[in-house]
């Protein structure tokens, strides 16, 4: 699993040419899989003694089918629900693309549930490979985004 800063940066980098609103939604979509699974699971761990059923709800959040449902749910808060869903889902897809690059010693991700319970990963980079570059990547991403927005404003003006 890559760190969330790197996930957000990938969303911004991929979508910054589409307008700042769409870029932000894609970036928000990149954190949805972890925000809907790891974060509540950590909260349940802190509480302690929670039945496994509640962890099952967290597990589904880090599968594409669960992410799609969460994107749909979050999109309900928008006037243009369809557009919001599309951009959030794009971010979610980017999340999985980055995650499967990593090597978790064969314990990959359940991408195809409920069709298949199998786990999958490419194992091209280490599971902590993004930690050392996250902050420089964030700085570079924000600078680039500021420049892109400035160019957009200049072209529109």
């Amino acid at each position: 699993m890559a760190d969330l800063v790197t996930h957000v940066c990938t969303g911004l980098l991929v979508a910054m040419g589409l307008g700042r609103g769409r870029a932000v939604l894609v970036a928000a979509g990149t954190v949805l899989p972890d925000a809907s699974s790891r974060v509540p699971a950590a909260a349940l761990d802190y509480v302690g003694g929670v039945p496994d059923l509640f962890y099952a709800f967290c597990d589904v959040g880090h599968m594409p089918v669960g992410t799609a449902l969460w994107c749909g749910l979050v999109a309900q808060a928008f006037a243009d629900r369809r557009a919001a869903f599309v951009w959030l889902l794009a971010g979610g897809a980017l999340h999985y693309l980055l995650d499967i690059l990593q090597d978790h010693d064969g314990v990959g991700y359940r991408l195809f549930w409920p069709v298949s319970p199998g786990r999958f990963e490419l194992g091209w980079i280490g599971s902590e490979a993004t930690v050392g570059v996250a902050l420089p990547l964030l700085a570079a991403t924000l600078l680039l985004w500021a420049w892109v927005e400035r160019q957009r404003t200049a072209n529109d003006g």
Partner: peptide
Amino acid sequence: LGVLGLLLVGVLLPVGIRG
């Protein structure tokens, strides 16, 4: 970085959405 990532999204949301 996970905490920072969530905070970052929280900061970005008003930049990208309104209403």
